[in-house]
Design a protein around this nucleic acid. Sequence first.
RNA 1: GCGGAUAUGGUGUAAUUGGUAGCCACGUCAGACUUAGGAUCUGAUGCCGAGAGGCGUGGGGGUUCGAGUCCCUUUAUCCGCACCA
Length: 918
Amino acid sequence: MEYDFRAIEQKWQQKWREDGTYNVEVDPSRPKFYVLDMFPYPSGAGLHVGHPLGYIASDIYSRYKRQSGFNVLHPMGYDAFGLPAEQYAIQTGQHPAITTEQNIARYRSQLDKIGFSFDWSREVRTCEPEYYQWTQWAFLQMFDHWYNNRTRRAEPIKELITYFEEHGTVGLDAAQTQNLEFSAHEWCAMSEADREQTLQNYRLAFRADTMVNWCPALGTVLANDEVKDGLSERGGHPVEQKRMKQWLLRVTAYAQRMLDGLDELEWSDSLKEIQRNWIGRSVGAQVFFEIAGTERKLEIFTTRPDTIYGVTFMVIAPEHEWVKELTTEDNREAVEQYIIDTKRRSERERIADTKRVSGVKTGSYAINPFTGQAIPIYISDYVLSGYGTGAIMAVPAHDSRDYAFARHFGIDIIPVVEGGNIEVESYDAKEGKLINSDIINGMDVKEAIDFMFKEVERRGIGKRLVNYRLRDAIFSRQRYWGEPFPIYYKGDVARRLADEALPLTLPAIENFGPTSEGEPPLARVKEWHTAEGYPYELSTMPGFAGSSAYYLRYMDPHNHEALVGKRENEYWRNVDLYVGGIEHATGHLMYSRFWNMFLYDLGYVCEKEPFKKLVNQGMIQGRSNFVFRIVGTNKFVSKGLKDGYETQRIHVDVNIVKNDILDIDAFRAWRPEFNDAEFVLEDGKYICDWAIEKMSKSMFNVVNPDHIVENYGADTLRMYEMFLGPLEQSKPWDTNGIDGVHKFLRRLWSKFYSRDGKLLINDEKATRAELKTLHKTIKKVGEDIENFSFNTSIAAFMICLNELGDCSKREVLEPLTSLIAPFAPHIAEELWHALGHTTTVCDAPFPKYNNDYLVENSFEYPVMINGKLRFKQEYALDLADSDIAAHIVTCEGAQKWLEGKMPKKIIVVKGKIINIVM
RNA sequence: GCGGAUAUGGUGUAAUUGGUAGCCACGUCAGACUUAGGAUCUGAUGCCGAGAGGCGUGGGGGUUCGAGUCCCUUUAUCCGCACCA
């Protein structure tokens, strides 16, 4: 009987669906395990073979954990709100709700064919009101809280109000947009609008007038992680800096906790490093420089307070709020012109030419608090308004940018650290002895930094300060397809909706594109206001809003009272294994951690971190094929013969090429222009050229998993995707080679059934060799799954079948069937039933290996290694300190080498002595 | 510029973590069975060499009885951050 994968897969997929085989419930009698995939954007293009890679890996792990006795939560859903869905809708002219619905249906049918063990009863869609109600709710919680740096947690804004009534800002240490100082009396005297304005300075979800990334083409602002090299990540449109009033999330409040939390996580080093860089912690000093002839003190941030005697000028960013005040009359024109020029340069230009030195004198002077000297203040765009205080003390001798600036403007360069060649370049290294520096002369740099931290504080001119590169997340988008803000306005005062009013549903509108007046699409909705007529916020939330807490919702997806019930949360706790792409390192994975920590502070969730272990699957690239058309003809020449002709290399659909051999008939049918194509063949075949490129429609290299499932079956697809190489590595898809895996499954099948359909399984006793093969495989596969080394476990299966030969003994094949079930669940289920079982293979215990079968025939020598007695097959042994020497020396193999002499060392490899040191 | 990762046959890769490099596949070659093969089965297949043998894990150096693995150095590719004070 043939291995009829189509019939088998259809049969079991249907059965699993009908029985709800993969649905799980809270069960305190069993240990839980939570395996999560990054849910997909249902884009219009459908899934290609790269998408399921991570899903297959996590599915194997889920099934393995389930067979190992865990209650496994393995859900799936759709990240359906956000820019990509809306852009697709705009392109196709259809309403995003409709295209999203269609795309989801397509994704679902593609996913279903692969045989995943998802609990679909827990499906979530971020665009549905029952779901985004809780996104809105979380936002309101952030609106209602502030971050207390003293207690290091979020606290209710009501308590802050009470504090203001009693103390004003005296003694307050809060995460804030700017440093405000007022007394209790002043607070009480404020108007309601002023108080609300003040509170926005502290709320964790707040509205502020800040510099934002504005993308004119998309008609919206973007968060920092959505901008790459000055272009929007989505669509690649230019992005400019613009001052706008926007909603933000105060993620910076959690910067230190997000940094500290990384140490506890089982994430890859590279991913942790990306997050560390993104947070960008740096320790330095805040120092105030008096401005000559005024009461003002210019605040700067520096990590090198030790170089303060080398400061010969100051620089402030062109956007600095004091630019006007610091500019003297005779410099005004030049400064204004410089600001205009700076604004005109796009973010992209600014990034592209960082070498250009430019700047203008303000005419004001600052007083160096240590030397008392007056030093000029410049404005220049090499100082960024967004980092630190937007002002620096410049030390040209020890900072390359300051050096370039000083050289350009002829400013003094005073070396204060020994080393380097100041005539040629600055000496930036953090080592050496201090010189020309009065009280710190002779100290080395590290010592001097510490000393100056204290000295600055002692003199009351500043303090030690930690700065972060991380920015607060811009949270509003001038788009239609997102969660509406549960916010309305009385005048300019933002008010929250009551919890009972949630969800605030997104109104269905006809025209969802940007308006011509530059207002968000929701401005078109006449009824977009409260019953009292107060207008709602017109922007919607960004894509990351809905994905920030979805892992919590899966725990309890139908709860109408809470985001997640206490009982459910305390059982499922957090995600044990998260599988997804590294591209979310600075986006979703940051926001989710922030969101979770915030809910943790409020007591809604019981774990500090959302994702304990995280595995990044590599990207699957495309492998394109090419044919060579002889220029000016409709004749195509095979790759090996092309040098004899003048040819043109054109992409050909990879689906009509197999093992680089072109299916000529399919090619003629592919496009009308090729109907009468002629060919120059080699050995009767047309061989195509190939190249690795991004998988995309325009390269004709997109491989649809449906196509593979149709031709080879889901089990083959699953195993082949894993066989392709290490999970974390990026690699091109290459359908060549899939036969090897398919052949393996057919051979597995042929152990159970003969050609004429007879069941071959027998109850004969297995030989020692067969059991050894079996247990070796069980050990290897079990260890490989734990290490996410799925490619090697598949190799182990192949070796196992090779070694077993034509053995069809139940004693061997039954454990093998349950062992392979996580990888190829359909065939395993079919064979499991063929073995006489009536329950699903998903619940068959994952087999355990018996070491007795593995060691019997091997040489084992006891060895001292690092002072411990161990049993190994190969080792380098220092005989001097081991009384096992006698044992070795009497060994048969050792005898002929020794000739009665006592060796220093005997080197034994795999039970064989390979070297003896006399 | 700073940080991270990778480099092994014609191809994808493996190597008990310092112990016989190339497992398992793809491809190629040869053979068997076949009307046929893009089916199945068997065998060969790192490179040089007729052979004995020699060489071989991007390059160079080192530690070690022994290095793909550890250390130094260098090159190439990929990724992240980047006028971050």
